[in-house]
C-alpha cells in the first residue's frame, strides 16, 4: 500500500510541479514564455562554470580507481568486516559510494547480477546504494557553480554522514533481513 502510494507519487511529482508553476504564473499574469527564456539563458553559463571543478574531482577519482587503490583497501578491510559478520563483497560499494555515482551503480549491478551473491549481500548493497548521494560530485558541482574552493567543513560533514549511512545500513539490514 505504502509502496504503491509512493510510486504513484514519484511518477506524478514532476507533471504536477510543472502544471502548478505554469498555471499559477498564468493566473498571476506573468508572461511565462519571456520569463522562461530569460531564465533559461543562464543554463549554458552555469554548466560551463562547473567544468573546471568537475574535471578536478572526476579525474582524481578516476585515477584513484584505476590505480587499484580501492582493491588494496578492500583487501585490508576484509578481515575486520568478516569479524562483524558483514559480507566483504560489499566493501567496494562502501568505498566508492561517496566518490562516484556511476561507479557505485556499476558495482551494485555487478553484485546484484552475480549468482554467487547471497540475499543478504545484495540487500545490504541495495540499501547502501539507495540511501546515498555522491558527496564528491555534489560538492564539486555546487561549490563550482559559485567558484568557491575553500570549502571549510563541508566535506567532513558529507563524509561523516556517509559513514553514518553505512553503519545504519548495516544495522537496519541485519535487523530486518539478517
Amino acid at each position: 500500500m505504502f509502496q504503491q502510494v509512493m510510486e504513484t507519487f514519484s511518477l506524478w511529482a514532476l507533471p504536477v510541479i510543472l502544471i502548478t508553476i505554469l498555471t499559477y504564473a498564468m493566473f498571476k499574469k506573468v508572461p511565462i514564455y519571456e520569463v522562461f527564456t530569460d531564465g533559461a539563458k543562464d543554463g549554458f553559463k552555469v554548466a560551463v562554470n562547473i567544468i573546471p571543478y568537475l574535471v578536478a574531482i572526476i579525474v582524481g577519482v578516476s585515477m584513484l580507481r584505476a590505480s587499484g587503490f580501492f582493491d588494496m583497501l578492500s583487501a585490508w578491510l576484509a578481515p575486520a568486516l568478516t569479524f562483524f559478520n558483514i559480507p566483504a563483497d560489499i566493501i567496494p560499494v562502501m568505498l566508492t559510494r561517496s566518490l562516484s555515482g556511476s561507479a557505485t551503480i556499476g558495482l551494485f549491478s555487478d553484485i546484484a547480477g552475480n549468482p554467487a551473491s547471497t540475499f543478504l549481500t545484495t540487500t545490504l548493497a541495495a540499501i547502501m546504494v539507495g540511501s546515498s548521494e555522491t558527496t564528491m560530485y555534489v560538492l564539486a558541482v555546487y561549490f563550482g557553480s559559485v567558484k568557491i574552493s575553500k570549502i571549510r567543513y563541508a566535506l567532513i560533514v558529507g563524509l561523516l554522514a556517509d559513514l553514518m549511512g553505512i553503519i545504519l545500513a548495516i544495522l537496519v539490514c541485519k535487523k530486518m533481513f539478517g
Partner: peptide
C-alpha cells in the same frame, strides 16, 4: 536540463510561487 529548470524556476519566482 539546466536551462529548462532555470527557466521554470524564474517563472515560479516571478509569479510569487
Amino acid at each position: 536540463i539546466m536551462a529548462f529548470w532555470l527557466g521554470m524556476m524564474k517563472i515560479a519566482q516571478k509569479s510569487g510561487l
